[in-house]
Design a protein around this nucleic acid. Sequence first.
DNA 1: TTTGATTGTTAGTAGAGTTTACTAACTTGC
DNA 2: GCAAGTTAGTAAACTCTACTAACAATCAAA
Lengths: 388, 388
Amino acid sequence: MEALRDRQRTDRQRTDRTGAATLPSDGRAHNLSLVRQTLHSAGAMSRAELSRTLGLTRVTVSDLVSDLLERGHVVELGQSDEVRPGKPAILVDINRQGLQVIGMDLAENSVLRAAVLDLDGNILDRVERSLSEETGLDVVNQVLELASEAVGRATATLLGIGVGTPGIVNADGVVTTAPNFEWKDIPLRDLLQERTGLPTLVSNDADAAVHADHTFGGGSDDMVLVKIGRGVGSGLIVGGRRARGAHSAAGEIGHVTVGTDGGTMCKCGKTGCLETWMSVPSLELALAEAAASSEPEAAADVVLREAGERLAIALAPVVGALDLAEVVLSGPRELLEGPLLNAVQQTLLERLLHQDPSPVSVRLAADAQDIVLRGAAVMVLWNQLGVA
Amino acid sequence: MEALRDRQRTDRQRTDRTGAATLPSDGRAHNLSLVRQTLHSAGAMSRAELSRTLGLTRVTVSDLVSDLLERGHVVELGQSDEVRPGKPAILVDINRQGLQVIGMDLAENSVLRAAVLDLDGNILDRVERSLSEETGLDVVNQVLELASEAVGRATATLLGIGVGTPGIVNADGVVTTAPNFEWKDIPLRDLLQERTGLPTLVSNDADAAVHADHTFGGGSDDMVLVKIGRGVGSGLIVGGRRARGAHSAAGEIGHVTVGTDGGTMCKCGKTGCLETWMSVPSLELALAEAAASSEPEAAADVVLREAGERLAIALAPVVGALDLAEVVLSGPRELLEGPLLNAVQQTLLERLLHQDPSPVSVRLAADAQDIVLRGAAVMVLWNQLGVA
DNA sequence: TTTGATTGTTAGTAGAGTTTACTAACTTGC
DNA sequence: GCAAGTTAGTAAACTCTACTAACAATCAAA
């Protein structure tokens, strides 16, 4: 009789997950990240200690830790040798030995660099590919091959690949424009993922660099890092997050006009661009001219001092508007250290009203050579472990 | 026998919640906010429609909605009159009639303003207190009395109080400095909460204004609003969130030096501050001088055009570094509209390299009179409902 | 040796969201 | 007017997460 009853159709909802609705499992993922973060930054500790720091119960922490043990994200290190009453604690730590990351720096002059890094950002191994005149897809292929080679050098489980590249990179890891390589809409992230099978993250090189400094350097949650090389780029951390910008072009300050008194003609067609004062080629040209003058040392000093002033003129409104705590310069130390850095600091203070006792701090990035490699690695750590 | 067994000490953990560990209930709170947000911005809809937009099941949405019905945050509006097969939908909507908010604007010249607003930011009632020469605690008392009066004017359940005040306000709602009122570390939020018993939020007036424009105006997630009044202040939205700054002083651009060619002496002691060009008093002074010249109209035009240029010179590095999509000016329309706004737009484009097809949009804020009141209300909606 | 402190685990419970299965109520086509 | 199909909303049972309660293991100090 009722054999003919309708077949119940299962609601096939929740197919796309467009919205940002939170499931209990999302909370779980967040808490797992918190455990990893705590261990990563504070070092090995017991489950009970984690429980106290996180505000979760020992039971929950035990469960989270056993989950992470299974995934290989953390390891047990044996009993703590602390002397105190009670059952001795078993230390757990992020699996520093068993996990590695690939970092890539495509922004160096005529060389593509890659490295294997551990979770603390130490470089364990390096590989390179020198470029001559290649552009377009030739460079892309070199990058893919270099990535494969780097992956082969890893001696532990790889969490993923991070890349710092010149040009503008959107949130999907597509390099929309990179004039140096004549790239246009290159889906670098997907290409690398396809090639290596590893989770991959691609960002602009200055953005990668600011990640590195934010993690391993000063660590202010409101800072800018200016990367001075062939061009001038920057990466900003605002409220602890990287500023991406409306068109993924945040940090592109090389062609902002500086000052109100003209300046040199730039290859972009305007005059007075920051790059005409601050890029390494511009500085070297000006220094060469200074060396040929009657008072070479004084002239060189003026060149560097003026460049620093110009940078500060451009940065002052940014630092003021965002109330940044740190301005970090990254580039050739022999150019930036001394008169240039001092001029930046001095001019910045002159142009900002700083009644408060904590003015902006201006300094050079440590380890400018490898800052992009390390920043690229940090991006992977954040993405895969929620760590940094 | 075993009567002497140890008294089990309950783990008294999770007392402080210092960390940011996520509980399932936090996820629930988030999903409740999502429902409110969706209804607030998209208008009344059925539970089933909510389910589809949010990606949660109908069952869960039903549960969330019944929760919100109990709290009075949403109401049922009866059957939808859409004509299509199936059971007719019961529309639910944010309780637009039954919930109200107090907004306060302390940044006007010699008057404190407050208003009762509905959830859509409409002003339902106003109250004011005029100031003569009061400073310090006298002003605080006026503010507290004004708040009480405004609360009395409400005709529905009040969600809370939002305040836009001149000066620098930290994350705890303490006004650390407000020179106009000679305030120093005034805990305005706590004072208002004590007086009225309502949840209260305090921000700088320009920050409140940018919230208003972000919600009711263009709505770009990367924008700056410059508020021109007695002084010049600004509020920034970066990546959809308000930039607070390292010392809660983000947006304070009035005393950034503009340009490299000197300028007028500012009361702060430096020369060439943005305020010397752009504040209403400075503009009015310059316009009065222009009116006395031989060609008053042309001179006035030059004054306004120059002011716009100066603002753009200061903003260009900010817009470039943050890749902002919108620059919004708020202030006296008769001063800002026309030559000044055009000069800002033109100068900004000249000083930025914009190869991409979506340059920055420059415009005036709608309804500059009430923008702080409405922004203050938005802050409450965000905080109490997760809406806006 | 006893007492107390501390760590980590097991057992059971409450909350959040899901799947499954149902009722209610409407339109369409004959 | 009636069956068929469609959509909205709900009830029950299950899963997952984190919690409380209770306990075993282990060590220091009295």
